[in-house]
């Protein structure tokens, strides 16, 4: 039981611990990037058999919303020159929600829409027949020389029109609708209810050879 005399304090000096941890923290802050897997999802059409000609789907001209982007990044929407894409999503929205010549099913769809969307739905017989499958198709055509940024901007606006319709249908904001993951049953139900009967019909045409390589 020999007791040491003059024993030093046994506590480790932890004062500089914070500094060390700070250094590590700053290292990780600087060297790492938060991986963001965000973007615009697009489902490509299935591949074509070269021996089988592409199926001819008869579609009336009024049911196609044509967006052309040329090699100078200029827009031609439904035959009209457009300065920028600001108003594009409103035009697309009006086109999708048009019930020009609804059949019985489309009429039922119209009746199921909430009041706010019904108010936006027109009955212009020169525009699309109905928003259901085969009724309204948005076609985006580019040149090979069109910049990717412009293409994405246009696709972004078209997607926005669809998401706004879906969200309004279930009574949430477009941001909330896009954040739905479909993980839980309730979210899935909401997601399906939003797009039921209004498929996202975006056709991306093969770009033609102008202005590219």
């Amino acid at each position: 039981m020999a007791r040491k005399k003059g024993r030093m304090s046994q506590e480790v000096n932890a004062g500089s611990m914070a500094d060390i941890a700070f250094l590590l923290l700053i290292f990780f802050l600087v060297t790492t990037t938060i991986a963001s897997d965000k973007g615009i999802l697009n489902i490509l059409p299935p591949k074509q058999d070269p021996n089988v000609p592409p199926p001819e789907i008869p579609l009336n001209e009024r049911n196609i919303f044509n967006i052309l982007v040329n090699a100078n990044d200029q827009l031609l929407v439904e035959g009209e020159y457009l300065e920028n894409t600001e108003k594009l999503s409103d035009d697309v929205k009006a086109f999708i929600l048009n019930f020009g010549a609804p059949d019985e099913e489309a009429q039922a769809l119209f009746n199921s829409l909430p009041q706010s969307l019904k108010a936006q739905a027109n009955r212009d017989s020169k525009s699309s027949d109905h928003p259901m499958s085969g009724g309204a198709v948005v076609s985006i055509k580019t040149n090979r020389g069109t910049s990717y940024e412009k293409y994405l901007e246009v696709l972004d606006q078209v997607k926005r029109a669809y998401f706004e319709i879906y969200a309004e249908r279930v009574g949430i904001t477009a941001d909330q609708y896009r954040a739905l993951t479909g993980k839980t049953a309730a979210e899935k139900e909401l997601q399906d209810r939003g797009k039921e009967g209004i498929p996202m019909a975006i056709s991306i045409a093969e770009p033609d050879k102008i202005g590219g390589n």
């Binding site: 963001s36 615009i40 999802l41 489902i43 490509l44 059409p45 591949k47």
Partner: peptide
Amino acid sequence: ELREVDARRVLYASVG
């Protein structure tokens, strides 16, 4: 090419 190989889900990565 992606259509050829049947990987048809494409995400155009972009920032907000």
